[in-house]
Design a protein around this nucleic acid. Structure first.
Length: 482
DNA sequence: TTTTGAGTTGTTCGA
DNA sequence: GTCGAACAACTCAAA
């Protein structure tokens, strides 16, 4: 009994439940990736994520070929028809995949499952990307959680997730491979090459993901609870894009953290403390994002809190453009936006700062920020992106209180105290002293002259004044009160 | 049904 | 410089 395994956001061989099931049969296994952007609704992959996907598919194809198999590729507008065609030409009777949780994917996958079964094929899906299914966790009254702490408490109270599956050594190949497109033909790479910064920063693929995790556990885990907030330090794991594309699974992370901490603890008996580690909690936030997306599928477009539908957003295009291009005149904001543009990633602390700035200082609808992130992040993930932006805007689950407006100057001073991060991404300010690096407009004239900075020339004047913008945001938020 | 305690990440002001 | 209170009221989750 041959099996088609339809790979999507599970681009790995280890701990892949659908692949494990496919191999449990006796027949050939045909790994398939379908590029079907028109089926993704308004959230087809952005440019940076497409770049990542290209290289991730290349890595997976290499890994599969080393195991006697291959990765079959096709571009299509109808994934269901394509799967049927592939199954027929390979003589396969089963199609298996790991679930996705985006609203458009849920609808499409359900229709495909029905269609395949009507055609007499076996079709089954598995959980390959979450510790718990979104429908497994419920409040006492049976509803979905909207507050993180009780959600995660319940998650931790359940038995540990299953041990991850080992990667197979060999995959039985079909006698004849159905036709496949070349990776290049999927057209994932940009026609104008802007990806230099991405190439310098990232190495997509399953092997790189595991290396990164283990390096982080050895060198970064201990300091993580505080270092994670410092954009000037390599304090975070940088696993987000790997997690998004499933080059590593949360179960693997959960398990590796457990083993690492227990090994370091020298066998002092069963120790559950590692489950409370801040790094593990961050995996919990990813789970929470998927929980919310599943139960509130309209939230990528609509605020969860209905009152925010009448928020008086403003929309000066030049403010949005200044933010996108890192020309707001606030160094920590501009550094973040340029890091994003250049490397396809931004430090989490800085994501909060730039998001707060767009929404509260510029009063621009969070959806514009979510869209920009979607296009420019290699780790763009509908669940995390939606949750993060709604949190900042105050309109989401467990949202920041309205009066929490990040001050980009004090945030810079606090988390990038000697300006290392700003100097790296905003080099025109590099020669300013620490005293003024986060507020160049306040620097004495001779200081600016010596640093070679003319505001409005080398570096912009601030596009809004912090205190005035803060008051305007509070006033706008006050209009929602009833 | 009602009550109670709690809720990721902050800022400002005045003593 | 440091510290505590105010910034509002609301909603959620559980008892």
């Amino acid at each position: 009994m041959s099996t088609v395994i339809w790979l999507r956001q599970d681009l790995r061989l280890a701990d892949n439940p659908a692949l494990g099931q496919a191999l449990a049969g006796s027949g050939a296994v045909i790994p398939v990736y379908l590029h079907a952007p028109r089926e993704e609704g308004p959230w087809a992959l952005g440019g940076a994520a497409q770049w990542w996907l290209h290289h991730s598919l290349a890595a997976l194809q290499t890994d599969l070929r080393a195991r006697g198999s291959d990765l079959l590729l096709r571009a299509t507008a109808d994934s269901g028809a394509e799967l049927l065609d592939i199954a027929r030409s390979a003589g396969a009777t089963r199609v298996l995949w790991n679930r996705r949780y985006e609203p458009s994917a849920i609808a499409r996958d359900a229709a495909i499952k029905t269609r395949l079964r009507q055609q007499g094929l076996e079709a089954e899906s598995y959980n390959g990307s979450l510790l718990r299914e979104p429908w497994e966790l419920k409040t006492k009254t049976g509803g979905p959680y909207q507050v993180f702490t009780p959600f995660w408490r319940q998650c931790l109270s359940l038995s540990d997730p299953a041990e991850p599956l080992a990667a197979p050594h060999r995959l039985p190949a079909p006698q004849r491979w159905p036709r496949s497109a070349s990776l290049k033909e999927l057209g994932l790479l940009p026609s104008v090459d802007w990806a230099q910064g991405l190439r310098e920063t990232w190495e997509p693929g399953e092997a790189a993901a595991l290396t990164r995790l283990r390096t982080f556990l050895r060198h970064g885990l201990q300091a993580y609870p505080t270092a994670r907030d410092r954009p000037d330090l390599p304090g975070t794991s940088c696993l987000s894009p790997y997690l998004h594309f499933g080059e590593i699974s949360p179960r693997q992370i959960w398990n590796e953290v457990r083993l690492h901490v227990l090994a370091a603890g020298g066998g002092r008996g069963p120790d559950q403390a590692w489950r409370e580690h801040r790094f593990v909690t961050e995996i919990g936030w990813r789970e929470f994002g998927y929980h919310l997306l599943y139960h509130f599928p309209e939230t990528p477009q609509q605020p969860l809190r209905p009152a925010y539908a009448r928020f008086p957003w403003s929309s000066p295009a030049f403010h949005l453009r200044a933010w996108q291009h890192g020309r707001t005149g606030y160094p920590i904001v501009d550094a973040g936006m340029r890091q994003l543009w250049s490397s396809g990633w931004m430090h989490n602390r800085v994501r909060m700062i730039v998001a707060s700035f767009l929404v509260k200082h510029l009063l621009i609808d969070w959806i514009h920020g979510a869209r920009w992130f979607w296009d420019t992040l290699v780790d763009a993930d509908l669940a995390s992106n939606t949750k993060g932006w709604q949190w900042t805007a105050g309109c989401g689950a467990d949202a920041a209180p309205y009066f929490r407006i990040f001050n980009p100057i004090s945030q810079g001073r606090k988390f990038d105290a000697d300006g290392t991060y700003v100097r790296r991404w905003v080099p025109e300010l590099a020669r300013l002293s620490n005293d003024w690096i986060h507020e160049p407009w306040a620097a004495p004239d001779n200081e600016l002259r010596q640093a070679g900075v003319r505001l409005g020339h080398e570096y912009p004047e601030p596009i809004v004044t912090h205190a005035a913008a803060r008051n305007a945001a509070l006033a706008a938020l006050a209009t929602l009160k009833n």
